[in-house]
């Protein structure tokens, strides 16, 4: 039994975090949503205009481009990171020499910030002095790699940099999963004469599902938050070619004095994330989970 006094201590110890949750999370969310229904520009004013900001938002080409870009970036980024990460994990799981060193190499980009990542790739993709120039000088005269400054390709440049940064993360998560697989599986499939690639595809991959879900969640969070990488690599350009929603919000909040429009955009981001997240969080943390028994 718990003495009343000590239950109180537990409650009091959590008061600061409750305050943070109520004020800094829930309160700010409510405030943001509230502003999105007003005509606010530089400062919040409470003249409610219904869904006018949302109508304006979806009539803004910069926002439409942002949504298209984040979809392209998200699919490429998550897809390629998963494929590359899985291949690297499986390759490292084949008892190779120098496994530790290779693992360290594959994961190091993940320790660096998106700003650093973006600036390095901006330099490599520099059309005058970067990779394109080097390959042209080496004899491939028609070689073109101008993605960072090409309207049609800029978002792919962002994806290339992002995939380079985060593939190692998937590798690390899946490798941990591979190490957790019962070794008798390999004996059994060997006896049955099943080819290794088949075992990986049909047996191991389904076993790795929890780790894959984890990786997808982590990568998705990175996609929605994508801001620094774009700022460092292309600054949203050329023109508005590589704008993303997170940057749209930031620009309208702090540079364009469009608070109503910015909060409408962030509310759309919020609703999107919640729709995807709540079922997963519930399944992952609360269904049947009881903590200490």
């Amino acid at each position: 039994m718990r003495p009343r006094r000590q239950i109180a201590t537990g409650t009091i110890a959590l008061l600061p975090v409750w305050a943070v949750v109520v004020v800094a999370y829930l309160g700010t969310i409510a405030w943001t949503v509230l502003i999105s229904f007003t005509g606010s520009r530089t400062l919040p004013v409470y003249d409610f205009v219904g869904f006018a900001q949302y109508e304006r938002l979806f009539g803004t080409s910069r926002w439409i481009v942002s949504i298209g870009n984040i979809a392209t970036f998200g699919v490429l980024f998550i897809g390629c990171c998963l494929i590359i990460g899985f291949l690297l994990a499986v390759a490292l799981d084949q008892k190779v020499r120098a496994e530790g060193a290779l693992r360290t190499i594959y994961l190091y980009p993940y320790s660096m910030s998106f700003i650093v990542t973006g600036l390095v790739w901006q330099w490599i993709m520099n059309p005058e002095l970067g990779l394109q120039r080097s390959l042209r000088d080496a004899g491939f005269e028609s070689f073109t790699f101008d993605w960072a400054v090409n309207r049609d390709m800029a978002i792919y440049a962002v994806a290339v940099a992002g995939i380079w940064q985060a593939s190692g993360l998937v590798m690390a998560i899946l490798l941990a999963g591979l190490r957790g697989i019962d070794q008798d599986l390999w004996k059994a499939t060997k006896v049955d004469g099943i080819p290794t690639w088949r075992v990986y595809l049909s047996i191991v991959l389904p076993l790795l599902k929890p780790m894959i879900v984890t990786a997808v969640v982590l990568l998705s969070v990175a996609v929605v938050k994508a801001y620094d990488l774009v700022v460092a690599l292309t600054r949203g350009g050329p023109g508005i070619a590589s704008e993303v929603p997170a940057k749209f919000v930031m620009d309208n909040l702090f540079e364009r004095s469009n608070i109503g429009l910015a909060t409408a955009a962030s509310t759309v981001m919020l609703v999107t994330v919640l729709t995807a997240l709540v079922p997963w969080l519930y399944a992952e943390y609360f269904r049947g989970a009881k903590g200490h028994g």
Binding site: V21, Y25, T28, W31, T32, K225, M250, S266, V273, L277
Partner: peptide
Amino acid sequence: LFAFLLLGAFIPVQVFLYPLVRI
């Protein structure tokens, strides 16, 4: 409380920014 904290970990920071600046 734990559920709210989890949400805080995943929701894009843009949603919180402006009110936090005002506060």
